[in-house]
Design a protein around this nucleic acid. Structure first.
Lengths: 190, 190
DNA sequence: CGTCTATTTGAATGTACTCAAAAGCGGTGG
DNA sequence: CCACCGCTTTTGAGTACATTCAAATAGACG
């Protein structure tokens, strides 16, 4: 199991003893998903928090008219999950789907709960991760309220500079909150 | 100093010994703001996390055309602050302004940092608070992408049932992301 | 190669905005 | 207490950004 990336990620927030590290690693399950498979679906109870070792996912929902809306993309070195469902153990609200061959490390809700108790440092790490995610979405709300489609596209390109080339236009449009048709016209003007 | 509400709030997440409670309370500063005063402003470095004992605030920003956009309202029993700025100690991005006479309890960034070290339980509490806030904003993004103005208004009414009566229409419009004029017309149709 | 999906283009439509002005409402000072 | 001021809310008319529906074209994949 490749744990180099995740341990590197963790070291940005907390430092672990050898023992703690071993314990943490023992809770991880490696899983590989093919393209277009689901890590989570609307209505399901969230079981796992996922760390992406390799690949790319999108987190989206489907509105009452059947249209998809993308909340965010996640790629290598990102944590992803339907946090609401994982925390509350209520029906999830989102789909999390791979966009290519993707390898993740999973930690289950119950293991995470014991981890918090045995190694409280992880409270700190996930506090910081939650704070960062919160700030990200706060930004996104601000942009949705105050930016034109063009400006939102600029912000998208900055934020996802590394993966924007992989993403089909349609998916970018769903992220920006415009129709693929409109996005196509908009791009032509630039 | 009235600490009943904040201690009640904390007890929802963690339980404190008498000693821990005393220490925590010793870090709090009570402050009263008149209507329309600022707890934080864009460009300032965030110093305090605020807990609202009484009153009501709005957190908003001003876009490049001078239009205000409201990210959220906060009322009694809410924690509020420009978390990005408090955490990173970089220039804040938002204005936090009272909408009536408001009494808050403040804890400074430096005191919060020591609190995390002396009483690590607070890592847990603020982890949970950050997770909840994150889920809230995730919801908001979802609504901005997939809901019509009318549907966003319905969601607003549900979320802010307790305070929606106090809020001027204009402020509601700025929250929903429509112009006050459009909001007025929309309301008439209902 | 054929099928399926993504992208582009066109034309008509609608939702929400802009600018302008009038009406309502609350607070302040003379 | 009333008059005035500033701000909010309403209403009107014209406009623009973005959507819908439809069809053609291009690309990707088995």
């Amino acid at each position: 199991m490749n744990t180099a990336i995740i341990l590197q990620n963790i070291s940005k927030y907390i430092s672990l003893t050898q023992e703690e590290e071993t314990y943490f690693v023992s809770l991880l399950k490696e899983k590989t998903y093919k393209n277009k498979q689901y890590l989570a679906q609307e209505g399901e109870i969230g079981k796992y928090v996922n760390f992406i070792n390799k690949g790319c996912c999108r987190i989206f929902n489907i509105d009452k008219n059947g249209f998809e809306h993308i909340l965010s993309f996640a790629t290598q070195d990102y944590w992803i999950g339907d946090l609401y469902s994982i925390v509350t153990q209520k029906a999830g609200r989102f789909f999390i789907q791979t966009m290519e061959l993707t390898e993740v490390l999973q930690i289950s809700k119950t293991d995470l709960d014991s981890l918090y108790i045995k190694v409280p440092k992880f409270e700190r790490m996930f506090r910081i991760l939650a704070e960062n995610a919160y700030v990200e979405y706060q930004n996104r709300v601000m942009q949705n309220l105050g930016f034109t489609a063009k400006e939102r596209y600029d912000a998208f390109e900055k934020k996802y500079a590394k993966i924007k080339h992989l993403l089909p236009q349609k998916q970018i449009a769903l992220y920006l909150g415009v129709t693929p048709e409109f996005f196509s016209r908009m791009k032509k003007k630039i």
